[in-house]
Nucleic acid binder design. Structure first.
Lengths: 108, 108
DNA sequence: TCCTTGTTTGGTCATTTTGCCAAATTGCCA
DNA sequence: TGGCAATTTGGCAAAATGACCAAACAAGGA
């Protein structure tokens, strides 16, 4: 792979890596429903605030979410809704895998 | 987040993590066109064979690709084509981000 | 059976990622 | 300005990831 091709895939990988964490997936799922403050998200997840803040920074730097300060609070919202299409396909992969396990059981 | 909800997002994260690497993205892109042997993919990427083999194992364990041995060679192919939809959205995120940088330049 | 080609596995090391705490920052209001 | 609540940043230790080499495995042909 030449370096130009590589950098194309590196740029893509940054976006996908930003989604590649259970907590960040949960956050994206919540933000798909409505915007949330850091504090709200922190309570929903149950980790330290600083941890959530860093997860949000990852999503923000990747361009997936947007932040807006209103008074003392910072509200995050989903910037690119098509991200949700990911989930549909991910579910399909999970279903396919599950089906195969059932097949194995059946054949036995 | 309760442990049941967590495990749901952990399962999803396994799939997405499997895609979160430039080399693995390249491989998926190639397999979308046609099946390939480990050796062919190795030559296209230019890393050590063992490295490619391990990347393929990650994709296989995630349920994204399928392997089939024919003689001495093992051919990999894409099992879940909807994975390609990822790319469209990823490009959109990249475009959005690029546009914002342009805005910043314009405003200056 | 031995050899050769193609692939996977085990081991090691460097790098990156995570999550917590403590400290710094921001904005509002008395 | 001082104080308070919300958020971010710096720093650190533990865990996960990625890449290479060497060794083990698998399949087919001489």
């Amino acid at each position: 792979m030449d370096s130009k091709t590589l950098s194309k895939y590196e740029a893509r990988a940054v976006i996908i890596k930003a989604m590649a964490h259970p907590t960040r997936l949960f956050i994206v799922d919540q933000l798909a429903k409505k915007e949330r403050s850091v504090n709200e998200l922190t309570e929903m997840v149950g980790d330290d605030v600083s941890t959530i803040s860093k997860h949000l920074a990852v999503l923000r730097n990747a361009g997936i979410v947007r932040d807006e300060r209103r008074g003392a609070q910072v509200f995050y919202s989903l910037k690119v809704p098509c991200i949700l299409n990911f989930f549909g396909c991910v579910e399909q992969v999970l279903r396919t895998t599950a089906d195969e396990h059932l097949q194995v059981i059946k054949i036995r």
